Amino acid sequence: MKTCHVLLLALATASFAACAQTPDAGRAAQMRTELHKRFGAADIDADGRLTRDEARGRMPWVYRNFDAIDRARAGSVTTEQIEAYAMTQQPRARQK
Results as ranks from 00 to 15, higher is better:
T78F: 00
G57V: 08
T13G: 14
R49I: 03
C4T: 11
R71V: 09
T33H: 11
A20Y: 07
D47S: 05
A72D: 10
R27C: 00
A14L: 12
V62M: 01
D53A: 08
V77G: 10
L50N: 04
G75S: 01
D67N: 11
T22Y: 09
G48R: 03
A84P: 08
F39Y: 02
R73F: 01
A93Q: 15
P60S: 09
A72M: 06
K37M: 09
I69M: 09
Y63A: 10
A20R: 09
G48P: 05
R94L: 13
M59L: 15
Q30R: 15
L8K: 14
Q95N: 08
T78A: 04
V62Q: 01
R94G: 00
P91F: 07
M59N: 11
V62I: 03
G57W: 03
N65H: 14
A55R: 09
R56Y: 02
D67C: 02
K37F: 11
T13F: 11
A29W: 01
Y63E: 12
R92L: 07
Y85L: 03
N65Q: 12
H36L: 13
D43N: 10
M1L: 14
A14M: 08
R73W: 00
I44R: 14
R58T: 07
A41L: 05
A25G: 01
A28V: 03
I82V: 09
D47A: 03
C19S: 10
P23F: 01
Q89N: 03
R73D: 02
I44L: 14
F66S: 02
R64T: 01
V62T: 04
T22R: 14
W61L: 15
M59Q: 11
R64Y: 01
D45Q: 10
R92Q: 03
T51E: 04
A12T: 12
A28N: 12
R27E: 13
D24Q: 14
T88P: 03
A14E: 03
R94C: 03
A93P: 06
G57D: 06
E80Q: 13
M59V: 13
A68H: 04
R73L: 01
P60R: 08
V77E: 05
D24Y: 10
H5A: 14
A55Q: 12
Q30H: 11
D53S: 07
T22I: 04
A28L: 08
E80R: 13
